[in-house]
Design a protein around this nucleic acid. Sequence first.
DNA 1: CGTCCCGTTGAAGTCTGTCAACATCCGTGG
DNA 2: CCACGGATGTTGACAGACTTCAACGGGACG
Lengths: 241, 241
Amino acid sequence: MPTKCEKCPLRGLPLFLEFSRDELDYMQRFKTGEMIAEPGTHLLSQGEKSPQLFTVLSGMGLKYKMLKDGSRQVVGFVMPGDFLGLQAGVMGKMGHSVEAVTDMTLCVFNRAAIWELFSAHPERSFAIAHLAAVEEHFLGDALAAVGQRPAYEKIAWAMARFFNRAQGTGLAVKNTAPLPFTQQDLADGLGLSLVHTNKQLAKLRRDGVASWQKGTLTVHNRKALLDIAGEESEVECRPLM
Amino acid sequence: MPTKCEKCPLRGLPLFLEFSRDELDYMQRFKTGEMIAEPGTHLLSQGEKSPQLFTVLSGMGLKYKMLKDGSRQVVGFVMPGDFLGLQAGVMGKMGHSVEAVTDMTLCVFNRAAIWELFSAHPERSFAIAHLAAVEEHFLGDALAAVGQRPAYEKIAWAMARFFNRAQGTGLAVKNTAPLPFTQQDLADGLGLSLVHTNKQLAKLRRDGVASWQKGTLTVHNRKALLDIAGEESEVECRPLM
DNA sequence: CGTCCCGTTGAAGTCTGTCAACATCCGTGG
DNA sequence: CCACGGATGTTGACAGACTTCAACGGGACG
């Protein structure tokens, strides 16, 4: 039985911009169904178009690109509230793949309806543009981290981002948050080798900054973490589709 | 005397999607003026909002982020047809700065009008979303190049992208294209040191692949360049604002 | 003619990748 | 029940790609 947009567990969170009554009704009509995905499910495929767009209701996943030589670049970690498939929706082709890492539930939208959305609902169109800009912003930050920072700081940056987002999504409990990815996933996201990633993680743990074991991230010294990461801990509100 | 959209020199290029008569008229009204910028002019500033949005008519520039430690990540090379300021337009805050590298001419739009655009013209709103998706796509590719490739291939990748875009913009002459940036700019874009960038450029030159001197890029062996870069030479059409 | 920016080249040092071995956990099948 | 393989995490040793430091040349400009 699909979740009503009205009762969406994400909608009330301060991370997300508020909905007008009108927008809420419109999204309810825009939504065509709900999908459950098991770990390993391919939701979207690089280079292909997709008949469906998604909003993540729960669970986590990975966005990644495969290169010709077989190496993998993780371009994002998918968390609740993320809108997936915009590239396919407007360009007709995904630049990356998206895969479920945990069990996920997703709101499903019809790609064909997106054009109707732009015609019928300027506020929602604006929200889509807003989401695209948020994504661009994030990728710029990621590029800066991967391009300019040493491994220790890259990892701290990733952890700070994770934890911040987990808090915004209501997943954090005190100073811990679920982090169901592998060290290989993180390494592929930061342009590091698995071995070196492991060693720098160990160093962050020894330094009493943060530890990540058995799928749980624990931040022991938030100030130090943000400092190493070069981050502020501001909450940037974003739209929810 | 500002250029009429009807006579826009970019509009006819195959790189850009076609305008309907209606869209053309609307853009003419949306455009509030034209701006000339000299090299070094700051068009947009990281962390700030901007009263204006731009479309590049001619000239080139740089998008970059400054990090706390003073290092710089170049997140894009600005070329004619690029739409600047979307982040400020929809999020109220730029994630990067934009600076002119050559003399530039820019179409100027009013930030306040963007909301009116979304209300009044769904096709143009869709075009904005499309542009944002193109940018996201590019940043994903850049992240993959910076994260996964060795220096030699990174540089080949950047050159292939440059040349491809220069051709699409009508700037290329036979196998050459103007490239007014410095080696430091390229190094900051690829996450490499200036010295190493210089040495790998010399190697590409020695290998007869491509050379870049006095602001001009010459592609001596396109097939080899694309091969090293891991790129296809496909033209992805994009909207023009 | 001096200064500044940009490009070029050599040498030395280090961060990070590769190779290799081992521990743990888990599901599968004998 | 236990053996086995596969996936993940951990650690040490070594190699190498890349950075840093340093010096020099050429062109633009005041």
